[in-house]
Amino acid sequence: MNDLKIFFLTHGTLCNAFKALLEYLGADLSVIRPESVPLNENESADDYRKRLLSISSGCTPLFITDIPGGTPDNCAKRVITEIGKGYSISGINVPMIAELIRFDSFKSPEELTEALIRSGKNGIREFYLQDR
């Protein structure tokens, strides 16, 4: 887990809000060291990919992206294949991010990614009144 680095990747600056939210929820950002990388409106996919490549050097990236198959997600997968290591999870949401509060209790990146996906999925619930 030592060289694992977490990146929030989103269209626009939503990723900054996820990082801020993590701190709001009480996480120790000095331990998790997450980085948010917004895809700017007029930025090409290739420029964004190069930016990800540059900030991923010397670490094992765990990219958490917004839309499956969106440009941040596509670029994350490309960077992982280029550097030959890393993880990518798409569909970022708040329950998923909240799981990172206990970041230092995970023993492996695989254990962490599994927990993030589980929390992300389980965090979507529906409530409605049948008879009003």
């Binding site: 090409s44 996919a45 917004d66 839309i67 198959g69 440009t71």
Partner: peptide
């Protein structure tokens, strides 16, 4: 589209 397949294409 120089991004080819992405969110605007699949969702939009």
């Amino acid at each position: 589209d120089d991004r080819l397949i992405h969110g605007q294409v699949t969702l939009g």
